[in-house]
Computed example of a mutant assay.
Amino acid sequence: MNKSFFEDITYKDQDFTKVRLEKAAYENCIFEGCNFADAYLDNMNFTACHFSHCNLSNANISHSVFNEVSFSYCKLTGLHFEHCNPILLSLSFDHCSLTLASFYQLQLKKIEFTECKLIEVDFTEANLSNAQFKGCDLDKAIFEKTNLEGADLSTAINYKFDPEQNRLRKAKFSKDGVVGLLGKYDIVVM
């Protein structure tokens, strides 16, 4: 069965919790002020789409393609990006809340997070090489066996993880932020 195809359409202020977004391929579409909380967005294709001021909390995004998709001022609480189709996965986030989201084992080279709340986000075994975390709050974010080589966390705050359990070559940190890498040593930095 062929999926429908929608291109260059703007969806504004729609509630997709009541009427499901059609299972289709969406290219160069804009979703503005839409509610997708707990909605089914599985098995869809999103290419060069932009989500602005949307709520996608706990949406089912299993097997969906997100290629060159950007999110700004969105709430994405509890999203499991590792359930997406990893082929062509390309995302960026600006002023978003991704509390309890998961990027487990994903290839996310050069991903950009700008002014995002990444509270308790799981980055375990993800490849975040050359990622940008500009002004992000990473309180209780999980970094285990994560590739952060060349990543820029110089303006990020509240991160705490073991540098021996992650790849950090050429990663950038602020002097104040380095304290978050020393927690396991139980030392006092003055």
Rank of each mutant, 00 (worst) to 15 (best):
S4C: 06
E7P: 08
I9N: 09
T10N: 11
Y11T: 01
K12C: 13
D13N: 14
D13K: 11
D13T: 10
K18M: 11
V19Y: 06
A25L: 10
E27K: 15
C29S: 05
I30C: 07
E32Q: 10
F36C: 09
D38A: 10
N43K: 14
M44L: 11
N45W: 15
A59P: 00
N60Q: 04
S62G: 09
S64A: 08
V65E: 10
F66N: 01
K75H: 07
L76E: 01
F81V: 02
E82L: 02
H83I: 04
L89H: 04
S90Q: 13
L91V: 07
L100P: 01
L100C: 05
A101V: 09
S102G: 14
F103E: 09
F103D: 09
I111N: 00
C116I: 07
I119T: 11
I119Q: 12
D122E: 10
F123S: 00
T124R: 11
N127W: 02
L128P: 00
N130S: 09
K134T: 08
G135D: 02
D137Y: 05
D137L: 04
D137P: 03
L138R: 06
F143R: 15
K145W: 03
L148I: 14
A151G: 13
L153H: 05
I157K: 14
I157L: 08
N158D: 13
K160S: 13
F161Y: 07
F173D: 00
K175Q: 12
G177S: 11
G180S: 12
Y185V: 03
V188N: 06
V188W: 06
M190S: 02
M190P: 12
